[in-house]
Amino acid sequence: MTVLGPQPAADIPAPLLAVEQLHVHFPMATSWPWQTGSALRAVNGIDLSLAAGRTLGVVGESGCGKSTLARAITGLQPITSGRLTFEGRDVTDLNQAGWRRLRRDVQMVFQDPLASLNPRMTIGEVVAEPLRHLFPGLSRAERWDRVTAMLERVGLSGHMVNRYPHEFSGGQCQRIGIARALVVQPRLLVCDEPVSALDVSIQAQILDLLQALQDEFNIAMLFIAHDLAVVRQISDEVLVMYLGQAMEAADPDTLFDRPHHPYTRALISAVPRPDPDFERTRKRILLEGDLPSPADPPSGCVFRTRCPWVQRDCAETVPERRPRSDGRGEVACHYADELARAS
């Protein structure tokens, strides 16, 4: 799914990362050996592209496949089918040695700041570890110079290198995680809900830090979150996922001001606004029922079992991704254009 709006072809940068029809399925055990096992379809046909210096936000409720998508893109989860290219090079079938070399260019920031750090290592050792493995030619002095410089760049003191992770707050631990990811100067940074475990004030600081580092190093960033306000602040494009599939994609202002897909509308209607008069009068879209199991998704449109505007043919035909009626992004819904005109 192309997530760029209607821009002149000369203004669209070449993608650093391109994902085509990505599927990640997990086989499920059966009760009897002669039975055919089913598969849990965590990611089921995702297309996206991301250029250097740009941020793609991925949103959706828990269980929609966001984290599995992140792990597949970073080589931490095997891909069932599809194509993954980095700088025009097909990296879909890279072996462990190939991914080890690519780690210089692709790094990840994890959701839980403290759990992602080894408690038995000082933060200096934590940040230096990628350098030791990916740049073995560096001397110890050169490694420590890079470590202290990066710690100071993320807002920590270089004198803290001998302290342990439990001595830091959650926000400081996430800064350490960011320093560890960026010390090797990657081209792509994948952030899997990096601020969800932090206080609101600390979230703002971490988001500002990520944006400043992105501008400084021209990093492409895949930013995964369930908080739509956070995604709108940091993203250049937004991809909405539901049950492993892409529902809609557009730039943040277009998506939030004029959503076309019913699922996007429901997500945005749940975002609180600091306006008491608006909050008292606005109508929220409440989705009934629970997220279906990715092991047994609904026929046709996977969102139809919870869609307030469902029609008979929604159960019969899978909606194809097509350009939105305004030409800004794409949407996968049979009746997106009718809903957009009615709103």
Rank of each mutant, 00 (worst) to 15 (best):
Q311T: 10
V238M: 03
V91K: 09
E316A: 15
E338S: 10
P297Q: 06
E248M: 01
P274K: 11
N162Y: 10
A51C: 05
F110K: 08
T92F: 05
S38N: 09
D47E: 09
G155F: 00
L48D: 01
S201N: 05
L40M: 13
T148E: 14
D90A: 11
R258E: 12
G37V: 08
V106R: 00
P13W: 10
F303C: 07
H133Q: 12
L267D: 10
S343P: 05
E216Y: 10
L138Q: 07
S116Q: 09
R140C: 07
G53L: 02
N95W: 05
Q107M: 10
N162D: 15
E338D: 15
L287F: 09
S139C: 10
P119H: 12
W99D: 07
W32T: 15
D275C: 07
G57V: 02
E330P: 00
T74C: 14
R71P: 06
E316V: 06
I206K: 02
R232Y: 08
F223Y: 14
I202G: 06
P294M: 04
P272L: 05
R140D: 14
G37F: 07
L48F: 12
R324G: 01
A342F: 03
V126K: 02
R140W: 09
P6A: 05
Q245N: 09
R140A: 15
W309I: 06
R120W: 08
N162Q: 15
Q21H: 13
V331Y: 01
G63Q: 02
P165A: 11
F168W: 06
A315W: 09
V43P: 05
A229S: 15
V154C: 05
L114K: 08
V331L: 04
G60W: 01
V147N: 00
P78K: 00
V195N: 01
Q245D: 05
G5D: 13
P113Q: 12
A181V: 03
D257F: 07
R273P: 10
E330V: 09
D296P: 02
A246N: 06
L222I: 11
H23L: 11
P274H: 11
D290F: 10
D227C: 08
L76Q: 08
F86K: 00
R180M: 07
N218S: 13
L94P: 05
H25E: 12
V200L: 14
R280F: 07
E20L: 11
R163E: 13
R187G: 04
A342G: 11
Q311F: 02
G63Y: 00
H261K: 04
S196Q: 08
P165S: 11
W309A: 13
L114C: 10
W309S: 15
V331M: 00
P186R: 02
